[in-house]
């Protein structure tokens, strides 16, 4: 299985957008997203292990939250767009059902 925790991969279309411009964020973490529906070679069910939530917050306020179920592919990928209004620190946090937390903060400076 893939390594459980790693640096998230983040790509941001423009870190210094004009006010009103659309910013695209691509974010991906390494995670098996084990469905809990598969069996191993000994016919034992492989327990579910998935990232359950993703949250993007700025100054404590939730901008976007994503609730994931086993249908989401391994190494969950998310791309979202928002309208830049003010300079912010975007905090992105992934939480898995086994308590694993991955967090990163990206700065967007509106010019």
């Amino acid at each position: 299985m893939a390594a459980k925790s790693s640096k998230p991969r983040i790509w941001i279309s423009n870190r210094t957008p004009n006010s009103g411009a659309v910013v695209t964020v691509k974010a991906m973490v390494t995670h098996p997203m084990e469905t809990g529906l598969r069996k191993n070679a000994h016919s034992e069910v492989i327990p579910q292990n998935i990232v359950e939530t993703f949250e993007c917050t700025l100054a404590g306020e939730t901008l976007l939250s994503w609730q994931l179920h086993p249908a989401i592919s391994q190494n969950p990928y998310l791309e979202f767009k928002f309208v830049a209004r003010k300079s912010v620190d975007l905090t992105m946090r992934w939480v898995a059902d086994d308590g694993l937390r991955i967090e990163t903060t990206e700065t967007i400076t509106v010019t």
Partner: peptide, 22 residues
């Protein structure tokens, strides 16, 4: 149920992409 997204009005738009298993 594959997933849900909740948006704050501060997003200004709702446009998301992910990858799912079928």
């Amino acid at each position: 149920e594959a997933c849900r997204f909740k948006f704050s009005p501060a997003m200004g738009m709702a446009d998301v992409t992910t990858r799912i298993r079928l």
